Amino acid sequence: MTTLDSLPPLRESLADHGLLANKSFGQHFLLDLNVTRKIARLAGPLEGETVIEVGPGPGGLTRALVEAGARVIAVEKDSRFLPLLGELAQAADGRLTIVEGDALKVDEAQLAGGPGHVVSNLPYNVGTPLLIKWLTGPWKPKSMTLMFQKEVADRIAAPAGAGAYGRLGVVSQALARAKVVMDLPARAFTPPPKVASAVVRLDPLETPPSAPEIAALERVTAAAFGQRRKMLRSSLRSLGGVALCEKAGIDPNARAETVPVDGFLRLARAL
């Protein structure tokens, strides 16, 4: 019987199957099991927990998640990896389910059969849309531990006043506690991307804003950060400008980058 310990190294498995990263899918493989095990620990404890992983590729992070005791549902769009992942599933003692599909279209509630976590080295080209889906969609993850390009990770977790602070950070932090928990240089990946990466841990808030409040927040932040060098009296003119700011208790002469998340929530509620 195949066990996790008896599986060949990932590089060997990739070579055996003749697999290379597909640029059109934004693929960069994380083959160092010491790194993937650290990511699993940052996401944990996962013993007995359901985890959705997007874009497992050759399964480096998948191995670490199964080792950590999770029940893993791996969603892979690239059918080339299914045989390799199937070998991993045979060694996973029934705790790995492989789903071929597009993560932007799958129904996570149906896949997980209830609550669960998301842990993924996200494909670069769909990372932000997937995060917004999990933050604002009907299925609410218990936690998310996600790898992005470092620039995107910094935007998600940036505080007001920081250069990286913008729409993505406001919406993310309105719905979850967000923290960069690990930085990874390009050389950690095969093939190395042109940019560094980072892992963000997001824990959804116990009492998040309502769906209408989030819809209003997206309108306010689009207007405010669409003209981020202008004062709010100008950038929010189409939504009420000075009157909206005064109703929310926000200085209309402030610029978007200086307004904290709770300030934008006040503007959204005033709208």
Rank of each mutant, 00 (worst) to 15 (best):
L7I: 13
P159H: 03
R95E: 08
G48M: 00
D154Q: 12
R11D: 07
D262R: 15
K194W: 06
A92Q: 05
V72N: 00
I132S: 12
V35I: 09
G137Y: 07
A243I: 04
A216F: 10
E87C: 09
G114N: 00
V106C: 14
R187A: 14
V261N: 08
T50G: 01
Q110R: 13
R255L: 05
R219S: 13
V180T: 11
G101L: 02
W134D: 03
V126S: 11
T62G: 11
K38I: 14
A153K: 06
K77N: 10
I73R: 05
S235M: 09
L65A: 04
H28R: 05
K230W: 00
F148G: 01
A103G: 09
A109N: 03
Q173T: 08
A196N: 14
E257K: 10
C245G: 11
E76K: 04
R228L: 07
A211Q: 15
N34Q: 10
G127D: 03
L82C: 14
L271M: 10
P141I: 02
G166Q: 08
G57I: 02
L85H: 04
E100R: 15
L61D: 01
K77M: 11
V119P: 05
M182Q: 07
A74W: 03
D102N: 13
A43D: 03
L4Q: 12
V242D: 15
L205W: 11
L31Y: 12
N125Y: 15
A174W: 05
I39Q: 00
A268Y: 09
L96S: 01
L42F: 00
H28V: 01
D154G: 11
F148D: 00
A186P: 02
R80K: 14
R155S: 05
M231H: 11
P185Q: 09
A222D: 14
L271D: 02
R219G: 04
Q227F: 02
A43R: 01
L239A: 02
A222K: 15
A153P: 14
L33M: 11
T36A: 05
G137H: 08
M231C: 04
G69K: 02
V51Q: 06
L265G: 01
D32R: 04
A162I: 09
R155K: 13
V106F: 15
D262Q: 15
K179L: 13
V152A: 14
Q90M: 12
N253S: 15
D32K: 01
R201N: 01
L175M: 05
L46D: 03
T136Q: 12
P212H: 15
L202A: 04
A68P: 03
L236C: 08
E108V: 12
K133R: 13
M1I: 13
H17K: 12
S197R: 00
G263N: 08
I250T: 06
G127V: 07
V54F: 10
V126H: 08
Q27Y: 09
A216C: 13
R155G: 06
P193C: 15
A188R: 02
K140F: 10
V181P: 07
L30H: 00
P208D: 12
P123N: 07
L14Q: 01
K194M: 07
P209Q: 12
A222M: 13
P138G: 03
G55H: 04
P123L: 01
P185Y: 09
F264V: 12
R201L: 02
G113M: 13
R41S: 08
D5C: 04
T190D: 08
E218Y: 07
T2L: 15
V195Y: 04
L236P: 00
V35Y: 11
G226C: 13
